[in-house]
Design a protein around this nucleic acid. Structure first.
Lengths: 210, 210
DNA sequence: GACGCGAATGAATGATCATTCATTCGGGTG
DNA sequence: CACCCGAATGAATGATCATTCATTCGCGTC
């Protein structure tokens, strides 16, 4: 059993960290708690990570990598930009639903990280945002999204909306089915908001009158 | 000079705290630094606040109160819900522009506060969000906003979008004039997104074709 | 079965701060 | 001026952890 797969403990520690960080927040989390949760000695943590910050950084990096890969794969299913937007939204909220603890950590600590780790520049997060910018740009080229909107603004409007919805959902204890319903509404608002009204009927999200 | 106006030091400490929290984040801020910034002895802080958390709570409470009062006043200028939305967006981003440090603290620590102060329930923040919900509800009654959107979802989509834009703007050092331009774009997206397309021409935000 | 060695342990260390409180300050009062 | 009292001070205290490292473990090898 000894001479463990290196990956084994590394991952075990990260999983424990997600749990503890989600529960107490990064700053109130004790390294010794993470160790306990991972069923590992305090010192062992330092064989796998430089320090407490380093744990958080790895959490981000590795999780964002998975998320980005997964998102790109899901998006591959369609070539229609508006449809892609819908997929993005549903996938994002779906991820939150399937791993609330991770979502909580990423949401809350992501903000923090801007300050307490001035050097860590968060490339991965920007890569994620830029998937959105790309979709918007593509939509503009195809005349489906209004030309006068800056993709860099749109990506933040979309992400911000999703993130705030997630926060709400993660913190409200009613982990009901509603996230599905919420996702649909967010789609409606954002897609109708971005769509170029001059091009005939918009994909179908804005079903109402018109 | 002694026997200071009580209010005097209370406010001086809060102002110092905003500066320090914005710079280092709540957890990395030392009480002694706040004291130094406020030109006050360490112990003096404890004559005005119960503890470090208490400083942050007062910051929230008092600032949100001002913001809410100010926002409600600005909104009084119009009775058209879509126009009100525009006003809300511009006012919110205007506040961020005029007090970035405060915005930074509220944005970042607001999230945190959900965790590290389980008891502090943040009524003020919800009050702020509910201004948005009210506008949306009103718009629905007047047939200007789509009926099938839950105000509770809309308020978070709007707030989330604004908040993310602010984060971006606050952190990017280019404090240029662009926030004005950005506000306009956010208005366009959100107003077209919420508006009931079946009612004739939408207020004017979505100028394009149609 | 004993030796070697990387992995793991967890008690001890040392720094860092929030908070306290004995002391001082300074102006108002008689 | 002498006294009072609330306000302010800041050095000292005590807790809390992150991190280290001397020691132990346990497998694989001969």
């Amino acid at each position: 059993m000894a001479r463990q797969r290196h990956e084994g403990k590394h991952q075990k520690i990260l999983n424990a960290a997600v749990k503890v960080f989600a529960q107490k927040g990064f700053f109130n989390a004790k390294v010794s708690e993470i160790a306990k949760e991972a069923r590992v000695a305090d010192g062992t943590i330092y064989l796998y990570f430089k320090n407490k910050d380093d744990i958080l950084i790895h959490l981000f990096e590795e999780e964002m990598e998975k998320i980005i890969r997964n998102m790109k794969e899901s998006l591959g299913a369609s070539s229609d930009p508006l449809e892609k937007l819908r997929i993005f939204i549903k996938t994002h909220l779906g991820l939150v639903e399937s791993n609330p603890a991770m979502a909580e950590v990423i949401q809350v600590e992501l903000r923090q990280s801007n300050k307490f780790m001035k050097h860590y520049d968060n490339r991965k997060f920007h890569e994620y945002l830029n998937i959105l910018a790309e979709i918007v740009r593509d939509g503009q080229q195809k005349g489906l999204i209004r030309q006068n909107i800056l993709p860099s603004v749109a990506k933040r409007v979309i992400f911000g909306a999703l993130d705030e919805m997630s926060t709400y959902w993660v913190f409200s204890k009613r982990r009901s089915k509603v996230l599905e319903e919420v996702a649909a509404q967010v789609c409606e608002i954002l897609i109708q908001g971005l769509a170029d009204g001059s091009s005939s009927l918009v994909a179908g999200a804005a079903a109402s009158g018109n």
